[in-house]
Structure formats: C-alpha cells, structure tokens
C-alpha cells in the first residue's frame, strides 16, 4: 500500500481554505429501502493537503480523511487506518456510497474546476447549477469564500443519492 503520508503542518495561514458545517446524506434504493447519514464536517485544505473531519453532534470526530498527492488515508478513532487512491474511494468505504469529495474541492469554492460540466447556470456570475460526472449540483447562499448551501443529487440504476451540505463558517 502507499507509504504513510507525511503529516505536514498547514503552511501559511492565507493558503488555508477552511469550511465547517453539517451534511445530510439520503439514499433511496430501487427496492424502496432507504438509508441516511447526518453529521458535521470540518474541511481544512492547503495546496499540499486536504483534511476532512466527520463529526457527531457532540463535536466528536468520528473519522478523518487526509488526502494529498500521494493518496488518501482514512483514520478511525480506534487508530485503525485505511488507504485508497482518492478521498472519494475512502468515503465510499466509510459510508458505503460514492460522495464527490474531489469535486467538492472546487464546488465549496463556488467553482466547477476542470471536469467536464454541462447545463451550467450562473447567478451574479457564480455557478448556481451544473451537472458533473452524473451529479446534479446546486450552489446557493454565497459568501466571500463560496456557497454556504450545496445540494447534490445523483441517479444511478438502482439508487438515488442526495447530499445536502450547510456551511456554518
């Protein structure tokens, strides 16, 4: 597996992109069964490294995803770790559903990034709706850093996935 990631302390403060808030994931399966996950998140990113903490309402970190050029690592509170090439693959291991963490690097900043994008709609020159990699993404409540409400829906053969993210600060 990948060599353990060097734990680098974040560089200059201004290169940090930090967003914290809450997320709700809801899944509708073709057979009518449903699943859901609700929790908090802390997104800390600098040019070298992304750290995504997933927390419960009491603020306790339930899992930490660290991603850098060399790959991604998932840390559990009991010390167990898992490796993967991308954070998306790790979050899928954690929740069982593919969440577009890579895409969110741009979407949280109100950008569409370099991936193929269709049906782009803008409001005040800022992306408000677009489709990427099968995800229908709606971005609203912009502040200086980006949208504070993100909604993502993806329809696959057997499953409807929806993610709602509220950024608190």
């Amino acid at each position: 597996c990948a060599a353990p990631l060097p734990v680098t302390t974040p560089t200059a403060q201004d290169e940090q992109f930090i967003r914290s808030g809450r997320f709700a994931l809801a899944v509708d399966n073709a057979d009518g069964s449903r699943d859901a996950v609700q929790g908090g998140f802390q997104w800390q990113e600098n040019p070298q490294r992304l750290q995504l903490d997933l927390t419960n309402p009491m603020g306790t970190v339930l899992a930490r995803v660290e991603a850098s050029a060399t790959g991604a690592i998932l840390r559990y509170p009991n010390g167990q770790t898992e490796y993967a090439t991308s954070p998306d693959a790790l979050v899928e291991q954690l929740f069982g559903y593919a969440i577009p963490v890579e895409g969110m690097r741009d979407w949280l900043r109100g950008q569409t990034g370099s991936r193929p994008t269709t049906d782009l709609a803008l409001q005040q020159q800022q992306p408000s709706y677009f489709v990427q990699d099968g995800w229908r993404v709606r971005l609203q409540r912009y502040d200086a850093l980006g949208p504070k409400l993100l909604q993502m829906h993806r329809h696959q053969a057997q499953q409807n996935l929806s993610v709602r993210i509220v950024v608190d600060y």
């Binding site: 903490d53 009491m58 603020g59 306790t60 970190v61 930490r64 840390r75 559990y76 509170p77 009991n78 010390g79």
Partner: peptide, 10 residues
C-alpha cells in the same frame, strides 16, 4: 470536557 481520539476537546 470531552477529548476525542483526534485530540479535539469539547
């Protein structure tokens, strides 16, 4: 005072 496994204190 709650200390989680990642050193965060609530």
């Amino acid at each position: 005072v709650l200390l989680d496994a990642f050193g965060q204190q609530t």
